[in-house]
């Protein structure tokens, strides 16, 4: 039942973008007599300036993340943290993913792929990992890009709140999966 539901949901999702691309100009042109071509070009002009404006912020954040990861500091913090985590019922296998997720999308996808290949998609560890991946975001990247695009440098409580939400997402993923599948 659920399988069918999810299947049709993901099937449906591939029509969303084409529908929006056609549906919005259709509504504008037919119902509101908007000059859709001119409006499109007018709006699209901003794409270039915004993309270029975020470059310095992207360089700053991605370089720092890259250096941290390449040094082996992530593995080291894992060794450090795993005894504590075992104590609260957090599977140590899922820790690298939990730590990597706010930092890097491609890095965390790599870790998830590895988890699923090693333990199999039917394992609790893979299910926790996949849930974690789906319920958290690359917070550092999003914050750097979004604030960078408007030139905000003092981010106040945004990072703390984002990381707190990530932590709640990660822990929820662990406990919910253990409760349902464990």
């Amino acid at each position: 039942m659920i399988g069918l539901f999810v299947g049709s949901f993901n099937e449906f999702s591939k029509y969303i973008i084409p529908f929006l691309l056609v549906g919005i100009p259709f509504y504008g042109l037919v119902f509101k007599k908007v000059k859709v071509y001119e409006s499109f070009v007018e709006g699209a002009k901003d794409g270039f300036t915004i993309a270029v404006r975020i470059i310095p912020y992207l360089v700053a954040i991605l370089v720092a993340i890259g250096m941290f990861r390449a040094s082996g500091a992530l593995d080291l913090s894992l060794n450090f943290l795993s005894p504590v985590l075992t104590l609260i019922g957090f599977p140590p296998e899922n820790l690298p993913l939990a730590l990597m997720r706010p930092l890097s999308g491609s890095g965390s996808l790599g870790l998830l792929t590895d988890l699923i290949n090693v333990h199999g998609p039917d394992s609790l560890i893979a299910k926790i990992g996949a849930t974690m991946f789906g319920s958290t975001e690359t917070t550092f990247y999003v914050l750097a890009v979004y604030f960078g695009s408007v030139g905000v440098r003092k981010t106040r409580h945004a990072l703390a709140a984002g990381l707190f939400a990530d932590a709640v997402g990660v822990l929820s993923a662990v406990y919910i999966c253990q409760f349902i599948f464990g």
Binding site: G28, S39, L62
Partner: peptide
């Protein structure tokens, strides 16, 4: 490497940004 990745990411974003902001402008004006 990451400095290069950052620029490639941003450049790759230009087209998608232009596409969605263009569509958004139509949605806004209608």
């Amino acid at each position: 490497d990451m400095a290069k990745v950052a620029v490639n990411l941003a450049i790759g974003l230009i087209g998608i940004m232009a596409l969605w902001l263009g569509i958004m402008k139509i949605a806004e004006e209608s």
